[in-house]
């Protein structure tokens, strides 16, 4: 299986930048850093199936990052408002959501983002569904996850041929 050069290049760049940040630009750290960066790139490529997986689109990621930050702050304010009220206004429960996003990194990202969203945490990711715990069953949980799923799906490039025809709406 051939590895796309771009998949190698951006990993080398990313891990190199990480090493640079961690070691504060110390020149003497590179005799250890360079082999580490190469090793990390190799391991990551092994885990990512030799760069054959769908890549994140960095520009779209930048565009929707403010949305995640804003939702995260709203989520924290929501918790704060509930726990500080003497009556403790919560009505928790489990909600099941059928996933349309294909398996892989997108699903894991979705699960982690659900945890940041106001009122929901992801409790189980299995088969083609996700079980979400909500602080308030009165919230439009399903609609909010659908919206989030669409945004996360847009982060990834088009589906490879083998993943199409999964019954996407």
């Amino acid at each position: 299986m051939s590895v796309p050069p771009a998949a190698v290049a951006w990993r080398l760049g990313l891990f190199g930048a990480l090493w640079f940040i961690l070691c504060g630009g110390e020149l003497g750290s590179w005799p250890f850093g360079l082999p580490t960066v190469v090793l990390a790139t190799w391991v990551d490529l092994q885990l990512a199936g030799n760069g054959q997986t769908r890549a994140l689109r960095p520009l779209i990621l930048m565009r929707i990052l403010p949305f995640f930050f804003w939702k995260s702050i709203l989520g924290a304010l929501d918790v704060m408002a509930r726990v500080l009220k003497p009556r403790l206004p919560i009505d928790p429960g489990l909600v099941e959501f059928p996933l349309t996003i294909p398996p892989g990194g997108g699903r894991i990202l979705l699960a982690n983002c659900i945890t940041l969203l106001p009122g929901t945490i992801s409790a189980r990711l299995a088969d083609d569904r996700i079980i979400v715990h909500t602080l308030d069953k009165g919230l439009p949980v399903v609609a909010k996850i659908q919206d989030l799923e669409g945004r996360i799906a847009s982060l990834y490039g088009p589906c490879p041929a083998k993943e199409t025809g999964r019954g996407l709406p």
Binding site: G75, A76, V79, V83, I90, P92, T115, P118, H133, L135
Partner: peptide, 9 residues
């Protein structure tokens, strides 16, 4: 479950 909400967010 509800405690996880408070801690993570």
């Amino acid at each position: 479950y509800t405690r996880l909400h408070a801690l993570t967010k």
